[in-house]
């Protein structure tokens, strides 16, 4: 950038001061876009996420519950987002057979890996909650979810001591890309009483648009955490070797892993 060579020894302080605000604002607007593209600035901006994560862990106790609502507040249509109709052959076949052959696998850093059918999940103790879904875009929608508390499933497979995260592998390729959708929670969020693998929405079997046959509900997190079409739950000590290594489909595309804000 070239600067006009107008500054002499007699330049008045007044002009300097008066120009400061305008200059500050102007260079800020031009500068922010430029430095947004800088890799280390991206990392610095991302480190704010850690601050938010720690602060929110500090004030929201392990047990603090997301608000639950009245049946009368349930939205007439629960707005589906992301993939709404997976076209993968295996998924189409499951839909044809009403998910009779579908199985949930739970493995990774656990003592007793297992697979469960939809009927077996339905036979386990369930939790029903009417909660508000908050999309990262800004909108909200209230629905009633019924499913198995993730904590109960974890108790059955018994995570090993090294397990630090629970990863949810999904059946759908979002927007027809090459990566399958996936998401992850830390152990605090995974054991939270409102964290469930839901098979019913508003007293009916989970529709395909909303993630049939099984989706995650982690009610203290934004919408992109609520993985749909869950096929496999894997316990890991790090995301390093999973897809882009950031712990989720959108995380690999720049979104914060901590979705509490």
């Amino acid at each position: 950038m070239s600067k006009p060579e107008s500054s002499g020894p007699n330049r008045s302080r007044r002009r300097l001061l008066s120009g400061m605000a305008a200059l500050g604002a102007g260079s800020l607007l031009a500068g922010c876009d430029r430095i947004t593209d800088n890799a280390s600035v991206k990392r610095a901006l991302g480190s704010v996420e850690q601050l938010t994560y720690k602060a929110q862990r500090l004030i929201a106790s392990r047990q603090a519950l997301a608000q639950e609502f009245d049946k009368s507040q349930i939205a007439p249509v629960f707005r589906p987002n992301g993939t709404t109709n997976p076209q993968e052959d295996y998924y189409r076949a499951w839909v044809e057979s009403d998910f009779a052959d579908w199985r949930l696998t739970i493995d990774g850093l656990v003592e007793e890996p297992m697979t469960l059918s939809l009927d077996e999940l339905g036979a386990m103790p369930s939790r029903t909650q009417i909660t508000r879904h908050d999309c990262v875009e800004g909108w909200s929608c209230i629905g009633q979810w019924t499913g198995v508390p993730l904590a109960d499933l974890l108790d059955r497979v018994r995570p090993r001591d090294q397990a630090r995260f629970v990863v949810f592998h999904c059946a759908d390729h979002t927007y027809g890309g090459s990566d399958l959708y996936y998401e992850s929670l830390d152990m605090v969020e995974a054991y939270h009483p409102q964290t469930i693998l839901a098979y019913a929405l508003n007293d009916a079997a989970l529709p395909v648009a909303n993630g049939a046959p099984l989706r995650l509900r982690a009610e203290r997190q934004l919408g992109y955490k609520q993985a749909k079409y869950v096929m496999r739950v894997e316990l890991v000590d790090s995301f390093k070797n999973i897809h882009g290594g950031k712990g989720g489909y959108w995380e690999d595309r720049g979104y914060d892993w901590w979705a509490g804000i």
């Binding site: 929110q56 004030i59 929201a60 106790s61 603090a64 519950l65 997301a66 608000q67 508000r132 908050d134 800004g138 909108w139 909200s140 009610e219 203290r220 997190q221 934004l222 979705a259 509490g260 804000i261």
Partner: peptide
């Protein structure tokens, strides 16, 4: 009030503003 984790920690905030979308 727009943060879901804050909603769980301090539900009074959402009540104060008449809901998350009102707060937004």
């Amino acid at each position: 009030t727009m943060s879901p984790s804050i909603n769980a920690a301090w539900p009074l905030l959402t009540e104060l503003f008449g809901g998350r979308q009102s707060a937004r």
